[in-house]
Design a protein around this nucleic acid. Sequence first.
DNA 1: ACCTGAACACCGTTCAAGT
DNA 2: ACCTGAACACCGTTCAAGT
Lengths: 224, 224
Amino acid sequence: MTRARIVETATRLIDTEGVAALTMRRLGAALDVEAMSLYRYVNGREDLLEAVVDALVDSIEIPAASDLQPVDGWQAFLQVLAHNVRQVAIEHPAAFPLIATRHPAAPWLRPPLRSLRMVEAFLTGLEARGFSQRQAVGAYRSFTSFLLGHLLLEAAMQGAPLAPAEEPLDEGDAHVPNRDAELDVREFPTVARLRRPLAEDHTDEEFETALEHLLVRLDLENAQ
Amino acid sequence: MTRARIVETATRLIDTEGVAALTMRRLGAALDVEAMSLYRYVNGREDLLEAVVDALVDSIEIPAASDLQPVDGWQAFLQVLAHNVRQVAIEHPAAFPLIATRHPAAPWLRPPLRSLRMVEAFLTGLEARGFSQRQAVGAYRSFTSFLLGHLLLEAAMQGAPLAPAEEPLDEGDAHVPNRDAELDVREFPTVARLRRPLAEDHTDEEFETALEHLLVRLDLENAQ
DNA sequence: ACCTGAACACCGTTCAAGT
DNA sequence: ACCTGAACACCGTTCAAGT
């Protein structure tokens, strides 16, 4: 029994059954131990969640110089890093929101790159590829905002089936928000008309093109 | 006692004491009523949270034609809308993450514009200002991603003081993540060096320039 | 019609006690 | 050194009973 093992199975429990299902007692059971034993390794539930987040962030692979072609510059660095973060988000759709939601220790540790190790690697990575100090810091800000927006949306859409369909109240049936199939064409004609294009899933291209645009933007700012 | 009043005080409770403090029993007490009474108006805690989110989303002001100058086009529409969403996020820093985290009813209801009314207004607003169907849908996607990333980061940074400082474990003191003041210069030299620029708060300009860039990008895509 | 008391199952957490 | 039983305070939720 180690803290690492606890964090591991906690992460798995979250990913398979949702954050709400992560209970000290259930986690204990999953580890064949009583809940109270966990308090030897973990400072309560909050500390456990924090540890899960830290482990997830630490599992993001940072592209080393050897991973990239010698000709590649910062663009390749950010490209690869972005996809590595995305991979973690996709692998842990239920746990990823925790990364976004829990307040980081310092105000400049921005999710999802919210660890000192991560920030250090990011900044040195960009400075090594020609960014000035201000440019590197600015890129850290834009890059994190970009990742958070896209990946949280992606994760939220994945987790949908986990939420048990809720029954509407008996009373007030009149104003239950319309679900999927039954859409009030009178009240929302435009949504009804654009139903098809709205329903299409373009997550991959969206991420790709938004990333591309961010890189262009950074390039322009650096040239100025 | 109405559902609206319940949702209202629930929102206030969340904003002042955090989501974890929103308990059926405490909410009841805040309304001078036993917790069980709430079940007449609300289908359990989950339904209540959903209602809080819906109310927040509905409170976002959508710029009407009369709010804008006649010469203003879609750019002004998106500018004003973006700032209105941001205002709600800033007024409810603790509640805003709920908007981002809870799965919307339909996969194309993207936070933070996650209501039919909102999507309808957004799409008609853009179509009325010259967007094609595809362009309007594309803009809905980029715009929501942009808002989510920026506003969630902003909200997360605001809420920081709410989180009670956690004591590190007695054992394993060696690898407690360094907090603010005591930063290991050896291990994280670049972060230490860029300490100053990193600590600066540029939330406003960031939002402004990122929004500006998004508008430019949409303009380019529309021209193609 | 609206509120409540009592009850149940399930939490997080502490601590003295076991091995 | 590590795990546990018992206990406490606090949850969400149901339902029969009150007014």
